Computed example of a mutant assay.
Amino acid sequence: MVVPASYVLLLREAPGGTGTEVLLQLRQNTGYMDGHWAAAAAGHVERGETAEDAARREALEEIAVADLDLAFATAMQRTAHDLPIDERIDFFFTARAWSGEPRIVEPAKCADLRWFPLAALPSPVVPHEAVVLEGLRRGDLPGLTHYGF
């Protein structure tokens, strides 16, 4: 079974024009990569929902922002070799414009929400998301990426 998910990476220019920043959340009590920094909003695409609709829904549910000006960044095919998990397809979007002030809506699942320079990410970052963030930082993120192969 292939499990689709959408990720939203909010980007902004750092104060003082020192580069691009990304908004990341610190995961807690989710059962997956707790204690890791991750996209500010992400989640599974529900039946009958487009990847873009899922991204907008997750951003509203997790960080209270709407009217996202989404830009497709990459699709990632992901596996974990011999581990008993489903195969994954992840849709990553960036947004540089939205309405509302990002805030933690689900404090039981999110310990912190903070802006970081793309050139100086915190540690640890969810590994497959780090691949995407590094591609964004370098400016050479391909339309299709892979992880775990």
Rank of each mutant, 00 (worst) to 15 (best):
V2Q: 06
P4T: 01
A5M: 08
S6N: 03
L10F: 05
R12G: 04
A14E: 05
G16W: 09
L23I: 00
L24R: 00
Q25H: 11
Q25R: 15
L26Y: 09
R27K: 07
R27G: 02
M33T: 13
D34G: 06
H36D: 03
A39R: 03
A42N: 11
V45A: 01
E46S: 09
E46C: 03
R47I: 07
R47K: 12
E49S: 01
T50A: 08
T50D: 08
A54P: 07
R56N: 07
R57A: 08
I63T: 03
I63E: 02
V65P: 01
V65M: 07
V65G: 01
D67E: 14
D67R: 06
F72G: 02
A73S: 06
T74V: 00
A75Y: 07
R78H: 14
T79I: 11
A80N: 14
H81F: 11
H81E: 14
H81Y: 12
D82S: 10
L83I: 01
P84M: 08
I85W: 13
E87M: 09
R88F: 14
R88W: 14
D90P: 00
D90H: 07
D90A: 07
F91M: 00
F91K: 00
F92L: 00
R96Q: 13
A97Q: 14
W98D: 08
S99Y: 03
G100Y: 02
G100A: 06
P102M: 12
I104M: 08
E106N: 15
C110K: 14
D112S: 11
L113C: 08
W115E: 11
F116V: 05
F116Q: 09
A120H: 12
L121A: 07
S123M: 11
S123K: 14
S123E: 15
P124T: 04
P124Q: 03
V125L: 06
V126H: 12
P127E: 10
P127N: 10
P127W: 04
H128W: 15
V131G: 01
L136Q: 08
G139S: 08
G139V: 05
G139D: 09
P142D: 09
T145H: 06
T145M: 13
Y147Q: 04
G148H: 10
G148I: 05
